[in-house]
């Protein structure tokens, strides 16, 4: 079944049973969010950090659930290493950033021997709930990669397609964005977009339609696309937006959040376990959606990227 809203994600996750989530050096807010998620049966948390202070915070949390564990670690790096070890052993299912520096976390995930990377590229997807209709929109990469070249973009797209399929989109429609809809050798993003689109024509992304380059007006409006003589089933009904680079990706995601007032969630892809990280424009309410999303990715039982 296709999920069209954040509520659909929450509902589906609740049906799939509790997952074990591990949080190195958790902050107060993490504990609040996880207490609620645990109370609703989504997750069983495992906190790793300085036991005494954790017990003090956790003890105060009114919703703190049975089954949650606290494991001792001396410093954040130890806590992270321990968390990753447990994920690798299959003792836990989901990783949450907790108090780990985001760059340290990404570097650790990427590490070939100790990390969790399982696909071509580790990437981040922002998920938006459409402001006026029942539809989810994926935007990627909005956090991890600065200036991905075409092979990395292929990985970023593959990761997003896997997530889209987890959300029930059988044949996702993808817009690879650029400043213009024509291929212009002077604008590198249009070349990458054209390559990805051609790969899709050749069936390299499975059941999906990848259109690019598309400028934003053609992507979001069928009528605008037709006026430019661009005919495609993707226009006006995009499931996944692939952005050219991070300046665009980050600011585009923020634009949807603030100018579009759209609810936003996200998750790291391309790792053997789902990883939830803290983005500044995601509300605590929507953090619960991220946890639910991560649970659904576990249900699939294989890597997410």
């Amino acid at each position: 079944m296709i999920m069209n809203s954040f509520n659909d994600i929450l509902k589906a996750a609740k049906h799939s049973g509790a997952r074990r989530i591990v949080i190195p050096s958790p902050a107060r807010e993490d504990i609040d969010v996880l207490s609620r998620a645990a109370a609703s049966g989504l997750v069983i948390p495992r906190f790793i950090g300085e036991t005494k202070s954790l017990k003090a915070i956790v003890g105060k949390s009114p919703l703190f659930p049975a089954g949650a564990e606290i494991i001792s670690a001396d410093d954040p790096q130890d806590a992270l290493n321990l968390a990753i070890e447990q994920l690798k052993k299959g003792e836990t299912d989901i990783l949450m950033q907790g108090g780990i520096n985001p760059q340290v976390l990404l570097d650790t995930l990427q590490d070939k021997s100790t990390g969790l990377k399982t696909s071509r590229t580790i990437s981040y997807v922002s998920l938006f709930q459409h402001f006026s209709k029942d539809k989810l929109m994926l935007v990627t990469d909005t956090f991890c990669n600065n200036f991905p070249h075409v092979a990395e973009k292929q990985g970023i797209l593959e990761n997003a397609l896997n997530l889209a399929r987890t959300l029930g989109m059988e044949a996702p429609k993808v817009a690879v964005l650029a400043a213009i809809e024509q291929v212009n050798p002077a604008i590198a993003s249009t070349l990458d977009a054209a390559i990805l689109s051609k790969m899709s024509d050749r069936g390299q992304f499975g059941k999906a339609t990848v259109e690019g380059p598309l400028d934003i007006d053609c992507a979001v409006s069928r009528a605008a696309a037709e006026r430019k003589g661009l005919h495609s089933i993707v226009t006006g009904d995009v499931d996944i937006y692939v952005v050219p680079e991070i300046d665009t990706g980050y600011l585009f995601a923020e634009s949807l959040a603030f100018f579009g007032k759209m609810r936003s969630a996200g998750v790291v892809l391309g790792t053997s376990s789902p990883v939830i990280i803290n983005l500044p424009f995601i509300s605590a309410d929507d953090k619960a959606v991220e946890i639910a999303l991560a649970c659904l990715m576990c249900r699939k039982g294989k890597n997410h990227g």
């Binding site: 007006d217 952005v243 634009s255």
Partner: peptide, 10 residues
């Protein structure tokens, strides 16, 4: 270009 033409959407 991508952000300024979001008027087609927002």
């Amino acid at each position: 270009n991508i952000i300024c033409k979001l008027d087609f959407f927002l």
